[in-house]
Write a protein that binds this DNA or RNA. Structure first.
Lengths: 116, 116
DNA sequence: TTGACATACCTAGAACTGCTATGCATACTT
DNA sequence: AAGTATGCATAGCAGTTCTAGGTATGTCAA
């Protein structure tokens, strides 16, 4: 939605191997329910990350027999997280500097009583 | 590059009215030179923001006579900043929680001496 | 047992965003 | 006079995200 989804997926895989459905749940957890990804977003992304060599995949199954495709972070994947993180902090610093200078309010508008 | 460019442009306009060329310079300043936008990125973005009603534009000129197109934030634009900011902090919190749990290093890999 | 729901994967196509390349015009500096 | 900086713009490709659909199976309640 906002920022690239790849960094979050890679970071979740840095917590440990996981699979598509669980990753979507984990995104919900990590965001306190604010991010609700669809599988149509995630699966193509996972395939892309695999093509790029940032993750590996293997077929597995749950205890009850459901097939799952587990993904694991590769070393290049770990490097990609570091790059994303550096990029993130650059943008975060720029945004926060601008917000600070402009005294941006967290609220939407503020026509009433804003000066009080 | 990483995150959506719109929030940063809107935030810069929250500092005060500005124009394309100056916005690009300001992005460079705010990021300590790490973000170097091209005009091919910015101008279409400004036009889009204007179509969406988040900014207004008017033609002006520098003291020396160069024509400039000045942009100003609208009230909906201010609201959009607040939304972007909320979205930003949601994603930031999710990423940081995952990084924390996974003990992600800031460095790229760490094959040598990482355990010391 | 049948129907609803959760789990679990996939793709295609549209829409949006970002990047590269190119073009134009004018002021300033050397 | 030529090169650099200022200042705007568009076109087209590439990458990303969203929407909408499609398949299959396990679990639970009616």
């Amino acid at each position: 939605m906002a920022a690239s989804a790849a960094p979050l997926v890679l970071s979740i895989l840095a917590e440990g191997d996981s699979y598509g459905y669980a990753i979507i749940k984990r995104v919900g957890e990590l965001s306190g329910g604010e991010l609700e990804w669809t599988d149509g977003l995630l699966y193509p992304l996972l395939h892309r990350l695999e093509r790029q060599g940032l993750v590996d995949s293997r077929w597995g199954a749950s205890e009850t027999g459901r097939r799952r495709k587990y993904y694991a972070l590769t070393d290049p994947g770990r490097g990609a997280i570091a790059q994303h993180r550096a990029q993130w902090s650059t943008v975060a610093a720029a945004l926060e500097a601008a917000w600070d200078k402009a005294r941006v309010e967290l609220r939407s508008a503020g026509p009433a009583g804003a000066r009080a």
